[in-house]
Each structure stands twice: as structure tokens, then as C-alpha cells.
């Protein structure tokens, strides 16, 4: 009797498929933001001066700090995979936690940045935004929409990494089975990648 023939005893594991699925999911995320990038480029093309003027209002320093924070966090996410491959559980856990910490720094920065904009009356539907030229208002609307959607992805990414940290602790993720961590890190890299495009588009091009 071979228990493998019994369907209920069948266990299916295919790391390659898991990673493939994650990559396909990332395609859809790219296209989701792709729609916004398209809208951004068309409105930028229509209102070049207003967009340039709007971009001057944004805080390049805060944006640059956040860029560095995210790039660093991507590095630590990638390092955590190498660590778990080598069986260094504690190091892997520390690196994942550091990545989550970076996500929090990013969000706190974002909070101050947005908070300041709200104070000076730049937020969707505000009187100021109704009064300024339409092109400039569109810039800020897109600024909030794009960075807002990105911030949601940061939060989701941090939650995913939180699960990864837990799984490393419980040993579900180990030196033999780490595709979950790879996928979690892939998602985090996407969050990073989107920001790499958002930063110059919104903050740097004048």
C-alpha cells in the first residue's frame, strides 16, 4: 500500500509556482499605478507650467529622506533572505524587523509632510485648491492620490512583513522553505520601486 496514492494524503509543494504567482501579481500592481502615471503624464503635458509650479511646493528634503529610507529597507529585506538561506534565523528576523521599522519611519515622515500641506490649506476639496489655477489643483490632487495609494501599499507591505517576522519566529520560514519571505520581499521591492518613480515625478521635475 502506498499512501501517496490516496488523494487526501497528497501534499503539493511548488516554490516556483508561488514565486511565479507573486510576479504576476506585481504586474497587476504596476498596471494599477500605470493608470495613474498615464493620467499624470497627460495632465502634465496639458499644464506644464502649473505642474512645475506645484512641484516647487513639495518638500524635496523630506522626499529625499524617504527615498533613502525605502532604498535601505529594500536592502535589508533582500539581506534577510540571504540570512535565512544560511540558516541565521535571528539575523533574518532582525533584518525583517528593521525593514518594518523603515516602513514606519516612512509613514511618520509622510504624516508630517501631509500634515504641513493640510495646515497651509492644500488638501482635496479645500477652498485654496478651488481658488488656484486648475492645472495646479490637478497636480495636488494627483500628488495626494498617488502618494496616498502608495502609502496604503507601504502599510500593506509592512503588515505582510509583520507576518514574515512571525513565520521566521515560529520556524514556518526556515533555511529549507523561504519562498514566503522571498514573496514578501518582492512585494516590498515593488513598494520601493513605485516610490522611485513617484519621487522624481512629483518632487524633482520643475
Amino acid at each position: 500500500m502506498n499512501t501517496n496514492n490516496s488523494p487526501s494524503a497528497h501534499v503539493h509543494r511548488d516554490d516556483e509556482a508561488q514565486k511565479m504567482g507573486m510576479w504576476f501579481f506585481l504586474f497587476t500592481e504596476l498596471l494599477l499605478f500605470g493608470g495613474l502615471f498615464l493620467v499624470y503624464s497627460i495632465y502634465r503635458f496639458k499644464n506644464p507650467d502649473a505642474f512645475a509650479h506645484g512641484a516647487k511646493e513639495l518638500n524635496v528634503v523630506l522626499g529625499a529622506i524617504n527615498t533613502i529610507v525605502l532604498l535601505t529597507s529594500s536592502l535589508t529585506a533582500a539581506l534577510s533572505i540571504t540570512a535565512i538561506q544560511k540558516g541565521q534565523k535571528k539575523l533574518a528576523l532582525g533584518l525583517v524587523l528593521f525593514t518594518i521599522f523603515c516602513a514606519l519611519i516612512f509613514l511618520v515622515n509622510k504624516y508630517f509632510e501631509w500634515g504641513h500641506k493640510f495646515e497651509i490649506g492644500i488638501y482635496p476639496g479645500s477652498d485654496l485648491l478651488r481658488a488656484i489655477p486648475r492645472g495646479e489643483a490637478l497636480f495636488f490632487v494627483l500628488y495626494y492620490f498617488m502618494t496616498g495609494l502608495h502609502a496604503i501599499h507601504v502599510i500593506v507591505g509592512a503588515i505582510i512583513l509583520g507576518f514574515m517576522a512571525r513565520y521566521i519566529q515560529t520556524g514556518l520560514i526556515n533555511s529549507d522553505y523561504y519562498v514566503l519571505l522571498e514573496n514578501g520581499a518582492l512585494y516590498w521591492h515593488l513598494v520601493d520601486l513605485i516610490w522611485i518613480f513617484l519621487f522624481p515625478l512629483l518632487y524633482l521635475i520643475h
Binding site: T28, E29, L32, G34, V39, R134, A137, V141
Partner: peptide, 30 residues
């Protein structure tokens, strides 16, 4: 996989435009 996200973000824009009164597609708001 490749087409659905585009309508997803577009419909989201409609929803956000309605909720926040911003002018992504409304010509009177630019």
C-alpha cells in the same frame, strides 16, 4: 491580469472624485 488593474484604478478615480470633490475627469474642475 493585465487589463483589469487599469479599469480598477479608473473606477477608483471616479469614486475618489465623487467623495472628495476633486476634478480628475470633471471639465469644470480642470
Amino acid at each position: 491580469l493585465l487589463a483589469t488593474p487599469v479599469v480598477g484604478i479608473t473606477l477608483l478615480m471616479i469614486a475618489v472624485e465623487r467623495m472628495l470633490g476633486i476634478g480628475l475627469f470633471d471639465p469644470s474642475l480642470g
